[in-house]
Amino acid sequence: MSKIKIDRTKDVQIDEDVNFESLISNQNILRGLSEAGYDRPSPIQLKAVPPGKLGLDVIAQAKSGTGKTIVFGVIALEMLNLSNTRPQVLILAPTREIAVQTKEVISNIGRYMNGLICHVFIGGIPVEQDIPKLKKCHIVIGSPGRIGLLLNKQMVAKDIKLFVLDEADKLMENNFVPQLKKINDKLPKTKQVLAFSATYDKILLKTLENFVCNPYHVMLSEDTPALEGKFNYLLFKFYEEKFKKMVNLLSRVPFYQCIVFLNHRGRAVDLANYLTSGLDQRIRLETMSKARNFQIRVLVCSDLIARGIDIDRVNLVVNLDMPKDTETYLHRVGRTGRYGTHGLAISFVDINELEFIESLKTNYHVDIQPLPGKLFFLLFLIHSN
Score class of each variant (00 low, 15 high):
1 M>S: 13
2 S>V: 15
4 I>S: 11
7 D>R: 14
12 V>P: 04
13 Q>M: 10
15 D>K: 15
15 D>F: 14
16 E>G: 03
18 V>D: 09
26 N>H: 12
27 Q>P: 12
29 I>R: 02
30 L>A: 06
31 R>G: 00
34 S>A: 10
35 E>Q: 13
45 Q>T: 10
45 Q>V: 09
47 K>I: 01
49 V>Y: 08
71 V>A: 05
71 V>R: 07
72 F>P: 00
75 I>C: 07
82 L>K: 10
85 T>M: 02
86 R>T: 00
88 Q>L: 05
89 V>G: 07
91 I>W: 08
95 T>G: 00
98 I>H: 02
100 V>D: 05
116 L>W: 05
121 F>T: 05
123 G>K: 09
123 G>H: 09
124 G>E: 03
134 L>M: 07
135 K>T: 11
140 V>T: 12
141 I>S: 05
147 I>N: 02
149 L>I: 08
152 N>G: 15
154 Q>N: 15
157 A>S: 09
169 D>S: 08
171 L>M: 02
174 N>V: 13
193 V>E: 11
197 S>P: 11
202 K>P: 09
206 K>I: 11
207 T>Q: 13
219 M>V: 15
221 S>A: 15
222 E>F: 15
229 G>E: 11
239 Y>E: 15
240 E>L: 12
247 V>P: 09
247 V>I: 14
248 N>D: 10
249 L>T: 06
250 L>M: 01
255 F>D: 03
256 Y>Q: 12
258 C>R: 00
267 R>W: 00
268 A>M: 03
271 L>T: 10
275 L>Q: 07
275 L>H: 05
277 S>N: 05
277 S>R: 00
279 L>P: 06
288 M>E: 11
291 A>V: 10
294 F>D: 13
296 I>E: 01
306 A>Q: 04
308 G>V: 10
309 I>Q: 01
309 I>G: 03
310 D>A: 03
310 D>W: 03
311 I>W: 08
312 D>F: 13
312 D>K: 15
314 V>F: 04
327 E>K: 15
327 E>D: 15
328 T>H: 06
342 H>Y: 12
346 I>D: 04
347 S>N: 02
355 E>K: 12
358 E>C: 13
363 N>M: 12
368 I>T: 02
372 P>Q: 04
377 F>Y: 13
379 L>Q: 09
384 S>C: 05
385 N>F: 01
